[in-house]
Amino acid sequence: MNDSLPFSKILIIGLMLFAMFLGAGNVIFAPIVGQQAGTNTWIAMTGFLITGVGLVLLAIVALTRGGGTVEKLASRVHPKFAVVFSVLLFLALGPFYVIPRTTSVVYEIAIKPVIGPIPPSFHIFYI
C-alpha cells in the first residue's frame, strides 16, 4: 500500500498549518504582548509560545493520532460525548467567539470612525 500523499495535498495541508500558526492574532497580539511586557519579555514570549504554538501543535498531534477528526477523538470517551463535544466546540469557535470578534473589529475600524460612538441611550447591554 502506498502511503505517500500527492504534492497538491501536501501543499494544501502545509498552507493550512501555516494559517493556523500565523493568523492575525499571532501577528498582532505577539508584538503588543512583547511591548507591554517590558523587562519581562522572556516570560511573555515563553507563555505566548506555549499557548499560541505549543497547544496548537499538541492539538494537531492529538487529532492525527486520534483518527483525524474531533468526533473520532472524542468518541473514545463515549459516542454521545463525541456529538455533544463536537457541537459545543464548533459553536464556541464560530458563533460564540469568531462572529462577535469579527463584528466588533468591523465596528471599531469601519463604522465608529464614520458615525461616531453609539450614545449610551442606544446601548443594549450595560456593563
Score class of each variant (00 low, 15 high):
Leu49Gln: 10
Ala24Asp: 03
Thr39Val: 09
Gly94Asp: 10
Gly25Ser: 13
Ala92Gln: 11
Ile13Phe: 13
Arg76Glu: 04
Pro79Val: 04
Pro79Tyr: 05
Lys112Tyr: 05
Thr39Lys: 08
Ile60Gly: 11
Arg65Ser: 11
Gln35Tyr: 13
Ala110Tyr: 09
Thr103Gly: 00
Asn26Cys: 04
Asn40Leu: 00
Ala44Ser: 05
Leu15His: 10
Met1Ile: 06
Lys80Met: 10
Gly52Asp: 06
Ala59Met: 14
Arg101Glu: 15
Leu17Ile: 15
Thr64Asn: 15
Ala62Glu: 12
Val114Gln: 06
Val53Trp: 04
Glu71Arg: 11
Gly25His: 04
Ala24Val: 12
Leu17Glu: 06
Gln36Ile: 00
Trp42Glu: 11
Pro100His: 13
Ile60Lys: 11
Gly38Phe: 00
Gly23Leu: 05
Leu55Ser: 10
Gln36Leu: 12
Gly14Tyr: 05
Gln36Gly: 02
Lys80Phe: 07
Met20Gln: 11
Phe29Tyr: 05
Pro119Asn: 10
Leu73Ile: 07
Thr102Arg: 03
Thr69Met: 05
Ala92Pro: 00
Phe85Lys: 01
Phe96Trp: 08
Val114Met: 08
Pro117Asn: 14
Ile43Thr: 07
Pro31Phe: 00
Ala44Val: 01
Leu63Asp: 04
Lys9Met: 09
Ile127Pro: 13
Lys72Asn: 14
Gly47Thr: 00
Phe18His: 14
Gly67Trp: 11
Val77Pro: 01
Gln36Glu: 09
Tyr126Met: 12
Ile99Lys: 05
Ile10Val: 15
Leu73Met: 14
Val70Trp: 03
Lys112Glu: 13
Val98Glu: 09
Asn26Gly: 09
Val106Leu: 15
Phe85Leu: 02
Thr39Asn: 10
Trp42Met: 11
Val84Ala: 14
Val70Ala: 14
Ala37Pro: 01
Thr102Asn: 07
Phe122Ala: 11
Val53Glu: 01
Phe90Val: 11
Gly54Ser: 02
Ile124Lys: 12
Gly94Tyr: 06
Leu11Arg: 15
Tyr97Ile: 06
Ala92Asp: 06
Pro100Glu: 13
Gly23Asn: 13
Gly38Leu: 03
Phe18Val: 07
Val61Phe: 13
Leu73Gly: 10
Phe122Leu: 14
Ile12Pro: 02
Pro6Val: 01
Met1Phe: 05
Val98Arg: 15
His78Ser: 13
Val105Tyr: 07
Ile99Met: 12
Ala62Asn: 14
Phe122Val: 03
Ala44Cys: 03
Gly68Trp: 07
Glu71Asn: 07
Leu93Ala: 15
Gly34Ser: 02
Val61His: 08
Gly54Phe: 06
Gly52Asn: 06
Gly54Arg: 02
Leu91Ala: 12
Pro6Cys: 03
Ile115Pro: 00
Ser4Arg: 09
Leu49Ser: 08
Tyr97Ala: 11
Glu71Met: 03
Ile32Glu: 08
Ile13Met: 12
Leu63Arg: 11
Ile111Val: 15
Val56His: 04
Ala62Arg: 15
Gly52Thr: 01
Phe125Tyr: 12
Leu73Arg: 06
Asn40Glu: 02
Val106Gly: 02
Val33Gly: 00
Asn26Ala: 05
Phe21Ala: 07
Val53Pro: 01
Gly68Phe: 06
Phe85Met: 06
Ala74Glu: 04
Leu88Ala: 14
Phe85Glu: 05
Ile118Asp: 05
Val84Pro: 08
